Lab assay of single mutants.
Amino acid sequence: MPSETPQAEVGPTGCPHRSGPHSAKGSLEKGSPEDKEAKEPLWIRPDAPSRCTWQLGRPASESPHHHTAPAKSPKILPDILKKIGDTPMVRINKIGKKFGLKCELLAKCEFFNAGGSVKDRISLRMIEDAERDGTLKPGDTIIEPTSGNTGIGLALAAAVRGYRCIIVMPEKMSSEKVDVLRALGAEIVRTPTNARFDSPESHVGVAWRLKNEIPNSHILDQYRNASNPLAHYDTTADEILQQCDGKLDMLVASVGTGGTITGIARKLKEKCPGCRIIGVDPEGSILAEPEELNQTEQTTYEVEGIGYDFIPTVLDRTVVDKWFKSNDEEAFTFARMLIAQEGLLCGGSAGSTVAVAVKAAQELQEGQRCVVILPDSVRNYMTKFLSDRWMLQKGFLKEEDLTEKKPWWWHLRVQELGLSAPLTVLPTITCGHTIEILREKGFDQAPVVDEAGVILGMVTLGNMLSSLLAGKVQPSDQVGKVIYKQFKQIRLTDTLGRLSHILEMDHFALVV
């Protein structure tokens, strides 16, 4: 994948999101292997301009796509893939009243899908469409860049269908997702969380590099694949309309690839034109409109599966009536509230959605109805927002919020430890010299600072030695090549209790 991002070429006709291997024109390309080798690009942008032909009021008969309808489940399912879809609609009884809503608040519980998330729908649909058009064949390999849930859905379907599955996901995604993927037989590649989507090191860039190296491999490409919004247009939206008897006044959905909100909203605009569509985008993402909503100094966020630093091709923002931004604290607070007060075992993005819903639905009156999409299960986040310690460490809970008995030293300040200034190293000294210094002084790690004293990161003896043994660096290389740029900081005025929580999850903390 090139470091400079080429513009994806656009073909003359058809839909841009065809499933299957992508040609340089962004659509299915038939021909000899030699032709494909000559024409197939190194990668295709996940934010390529959409060429979708959908228009409100256009006859369904003019759609270029294969459409399906929700099917009634048999008493005995032939395999677990038949437990994807037909998820329950559940009334939220307490939270709406707590925040003064007059309307009825309903939750579409997508964590009841077989793999635990709304992404099971698009995973199965992308595979079925690729099999139907002859792209996927027995023994082929599926590769997908994902925040985890699409990966789980694909790995689940691949396990049943017999495909090899490789999932490329950023490091910030939970260990629970990784464990589930491994249990399903998927191979996992992790990428830096802070890598831009168009960087060769991003999950998108690495996935395309693997595709170019592995024979008979395919990126189904949830960011561009029409099967993504079509899955929701054909099934999720129809289920909502049936469950609500066609009567709903507002739908609120958090947005990642945009397939969920695009597919549902398009069908609702056709069948229930008075329904307002509300999009939820986390602070630090750029999906919301108008652009002024996205202006923030924050560039990272903890909530998973929603928000991006690019506009995915499948996201149709014209069908969203209003956007709201959400933050991590309210997302996790509301997710825990949904679990504790409503018994809905949902993930953090569901918290984002409901946090926005109780604001947006203030305009609705008694007798009206708001539906929220709860995308995934708490299963993926047992060591994250479900953990009091994690919430404390991230600053989303305060010590006084917890009532468990603490040891005698818990409320003492870090400054009472009488710490001395640490050994520091410059980023320009060599790895070999740094190892000598650390061994001589008896230290395992040291902060790396520039000549102005600005902290650049941390270097550890173990990481340097393993990097040297693996051949990633040489003793003569500058130590700046092996620094940890993500590390926890703590102030002298913070409590030892807070430091204790940090050290339970990290090997060190830097006192500043």
Rank of each mutant, 00 (worst) to 15 (best):
P78Q: 09
K269L: 04
R125H: 11
R51E: 09
L230H: 05
T257S: 07
G26W: 10
K211H: 04
A114H: 11
E213H: 03
I188Y: 05
R45V: 07
E187C: 11
R209N: 09
A157V: 09
V90N: 02
P2S: 12
K97P: 07
N212I: 06
I214A: 05
R121F: 02
H65N: 04
A24P: 13
C103E: 04
R276Y: 10
L181K: 02
E37P: 11
P200A: 08
C109I: 04
A226C: 08
P170W: 00
K137E: 07
G153T: 01
P145R: 00
C103K: 00
T257F: 00
C15E: 14
P64I: 10
P138Q: 07
G185F: 02
S3K: 12
R132V: 01
P2I: 12
K108M: 01
R209K: 12
N216Y: 07
G162M: 06
P88E: 04
G96N: 11
K39L: 15
G256P: 00
P74C: 15
G96E: 10
I84G: 08
P64E: 08
I80H: 03
V118E: 06
G246V: 05
H65Y: 05
K97I: 15
S3I: 02
G14V: 09
E40Q: 13
S254Y: 01
L154A: 03
G11T: 09
K83T: 11
L220D: 00
N228Q: 03
G115R: 07
G148V: 04
S227G: 04
R132H: 11
I166K: 07
T68F: 14
D198E: 09
L77R: 07
L154K: 00
E201R: 13
L248V: 14
L81T: 09
D120Q: 05
Q242V: 11
K75P: 08
K25E: 12
V118Y: 05
K108E: 06
T236C: 05
S174N: 04
K172M: 05
T191Y: 01
I80R: 06
P64W: 02
K247N: 15
F111H: 01
A207K: 00
P12R: 15
P145I: 02
P78N: 09
K82M: 10
D249A: 12
G96K: 09
A265N: 08
L105Y: 03
A114M: 05
E40W: 11
W208S: 04
